[in-house]
Simulated assay, not measured.
Amino acid sequence: MALTMSSAYIGASILTIVAVGISAAGFFRPPEAILESMAKVDVEESWLPMLGILKATGALGLLIGIGVPIPSVGTAAAVGLVVYFVGAAIVHLRAGDYSVSGQHVYLLLAVATLILDVVS
C-alpha cells in the first residue's frame, strides 16, 4: 500500500508553512507593531525568540511531514501549532483583546492542515 497525501492537505500545509514561517521570522527582529501587540497582552519581549523558535519548529515539522514518508511528523507538527495558537488566543482573550488578528488566522490554517492530514 502506497502512502498518498491529498493535494488539499499538501496545499494547506504549504500555506501554513509559509504563513507561520513568516510570522516566526518576525519574532526574531520584531517590528514595532509586534512589540506593541505583545506589550498589550503582557508578553515580555524576552519571550519572543522562544515563541519564534516554537513557530519555526512547527513549520519545519510540517515541511518534513510533506517531504518524508513519515506521516506522524506532519501530524505532530500540526497538533503542536494548533496548541500554540490556541494558547496565543487564550493569552489575548485574558488580556481583554477580543479583536480578530493574526493568531486566529494561523490557528485556522493549523486546524485545517490537521483536519486534512487526519482525513487524507
Rank of each mutant, 00 (worst) to 15 (best):
D42P: 00
G21T: 01
V105P: 05
K40E: 15
G65P: 05
G21Q: 03
P31F: 10
T75M: 11
P31R: 15
S7Y: 10
L54I: 13
I115H: 09
S23Y: 05
S6F: 11
T57K: 00
L35P: 06
G11M: 10
M50S: 09
T4P: 13
A112Q: 06
G65C: 03
S46H: 09
A95S: 10
I22F: 03
H104M: 09
P71I: 15
K55F: 06
I70H: 05
D117P: 14
G52P: 01
K40R: 14
V20F: 05
S101F: 15
E45W: 09
L63G: 12
I53G: 05
G80F: 08
K40P: 08
L62E: 01
G11K: 12
I70K: 03
V68K: 00
V18Y: 08
K40G: 08
M38N: 15
S7E: 07
A76W: 07
G87C: 02
G80Q: 00
P49S: 00
S37K: 09
V91C: 11
V73A: 03
L81I: 03
G65Y: 02
F27I: 01
A78G: 06
P31K: 15
A110W: 15
S72K: 04
T4N: 14
L35I: 13
T75N: 01
G52Y: 01
Y9G: 01
G74D: 02
T16N: 09
G58Q: 00
V83Q: 00
D117G: 15
S101G: 13
T4A: 07
V43D: 02
M5G: 03
S37A: 13
L60K: 08
L116Q: 05
K55N: 11
L93M: 11
S120H: 08
W47K: 04
L62C: 03
T57G: 14
S23R: 12
V18I: 13
L108C: 14
Y84H: 05
P69V: 10
A77H: 01
R29D: 07
M38V: 11
A12D: 02
G67S: 08
V20P: 00
V68E: 00
I14G: 11
Y98G: 10
E32H: 03
G67V: 11
L62F: 02
L48R: 09
T16M: 04
I14A: 15
A12R: 04
G21D: 03
A76D: 02
L60Y: 09
T16L: 05
S6R: 07
F27Y: 07
M50H: 05
A25H: 01
A2M: 08
L35N: 14
V18K: 13
I34P: 08
W47E: 07
A78K: 05
A110H: 15
T4S: 12
I53T: 08
P49C: 01
P30S: 02
V111K: 10
L63K: 01
G96T: 04
S23E: 07
V79G: 00
Q103T: 11
Q103D: 02
M5Y: 07
L81R: 04
M50Y: 06
V118S: 09
V73P: 01
G65K: 01
L108K: 06
A33Q: 15
S72F: 06
I14D: 15
V41N: 05
L93E: 14
I115F: 12
V43C: 07
V43E: 04
I10A: 11
Y98C: 07
A89G: 00
G74P: 12
G58F: 03
G67I: 10
P31S: 13
E45Q: 13
I70M: 07
L60T: 14
F27S: 06
L3D: 12
G61L: 06
E44T: 11
